Amino acid sequence: MTSPDKSNNQKGTRKAPLSRELVLSTALALVDGKGLDALTMRRLGQELQRDPMSLYRYAANRAALLDGVTEVVMNELAILPEDLDWQVQLRKIAHDFRLLALQHPNVLPLLVTRPLSTPLGLRPLGTLRPLEHILALLIDAGFAPADALHVYRVYYGFLYGHILNELQEYIVDPDENEAILRLGLHRLPAKEFPHLRALGPALADYDGAAELDQGLTILLTGLAAQLAASDSPPVPQP
C-alpha cells in the first residue's frame, strides 16, 4: 500500500506532457545556458527527464532541433503590419532584433549561418516571416520587388554585422579607469597602432544601441534618397 506522503510526492513531481513547444523551449534554454555544443538529443532528454528516443517525434534529428530553436527566437521578433512607415518599421525591427541577440547570444551563430545550410523554401516558416513582411513593406513603399529584395539583403547584412561586432566588444579590465588599460591597448606597439590607441576612450564608451541607430540613419537615408530618385520624372535630354 502506498503511503499518503509518497503518493503526494509522486503527484508533485508529475512530468509535464511532451510537446514540440516544450522540447524547443527546453532546447533554447539549454543553448542559452550551456552553448550550442551542449544541445544533443541525449542532453535534452536529461533536461526533460525523458528517454532521448521519445524526442524524435518532435525533432527528427539535431539539425531539426537547431532549426526549431532558430524559429523560436525569430518568433519573438515583433512584426507590426499596421505601421506602414517603412523607415520606422526597419528601425524598430533592427533594435528589437539586437535585443533578441543580446538575450540569446549563443543562438546568434544559428540566426546568421543556419539559413545558409537550408534551401529557402525548406526553412522554418518563422524564419521566413520577417523576409516576407519586409518585402511587402518595401514594395508598398514604392520599391520595385527586385530592389526590395536587395534592400532586405543590405539591411540584414548590416544588422548581423553590427550585432556580431557588438558581441565581440571585450573589456580586459572593467574596473580600470584608463581606457587604454581597460581595453588592453597598452600592449599594442604605439608606433604601429597610433589610431587605435588614440581612439581608446571612444572604444571603451561603446554604446551598441546608439551605434546601431547611427548606422541605420546612414542606411535608411541613402535608401530614401534612392527611392525618391526612382520616383522622379526623367530629365529631358537636350
Rank of each mutant, 00 (worst) to 15 (best):
V107R: 04
Y58Q: 00
D83Y: 06
P233W: 01
D175V: 05
L84I: 11
V72Q: 09
A229F: 04
G45K: 09
A148N: 15
P52T: 01
G142F: 08
A198Q: 10
K92P: 01
P189S: 05
G208E: 02
L135K: 15
L30G: 05
V154F: 06
Y56P: 00
Y56F: 12
V172F: 05
E166Q: 11
E166F: 01
R197S: 10
T221G: 10
G45H: 08
H95Q: 12
T13P: 00
A144R: 15
A229Y: 07
Y155I: 09
I163L: 01
G215E: 08
A229D: 08
E21N: 13
L185E: 07
L183P: 02
R98S: 05
G126H: 09
R153C: 02
D147E: 11
M53T: 11
L84V: 14
Q214L: 06
V112F: 03
L223V: 02
L24H: 04
L159W: 03
P52L: 03
M74I: 11
Q226L: 07
Y160K: 10
V88D: 10
P17K: 13
P115F: 02
N177E: 05
L220Y: 08
L131D: 13
P236M: 02
P52R: 03
D147F: 03
L102D: 13
S232Y: 09
T217N: 14
P52M: 00
R43N: 12
S54Y: 00
Y206V: 03
M1A: 14
R14S: 10
P17G: 02
A144I: 01
L111H: 12
G184Y: 04
H195V: 12
E76Y: 03
S117A: 14
N75L: 10
Q89V: 15
H104Q: 14
Q168S: 13
A146V: 08
S54R: 00
Q10F: 02
V107A: 04
L196I: 14
A225G: 12
G12R: 15
R20N: 13
L110E: 10
K191C: 05
E76W: 07
P4W: 01
D51E: 10
S25Y: 00
P201S: 09
R98N: 08
R50Y: 10
H162Y: 04
E82S: 07
A224M: 12
L220I: 03
L77K: 07
D231S: 05
G142Q: 06
P4I: 06
A60G: 15
G157Q: 02
G215Y: 09
L167H: 12
P130K: 12
T2G: 02
A27I: 04
I180C: 08
P174G: 01
P109G: 07
R187L: 15
M1Y: 09
L80H: 14
A60I: 11
N106P: 03
M53L: 14
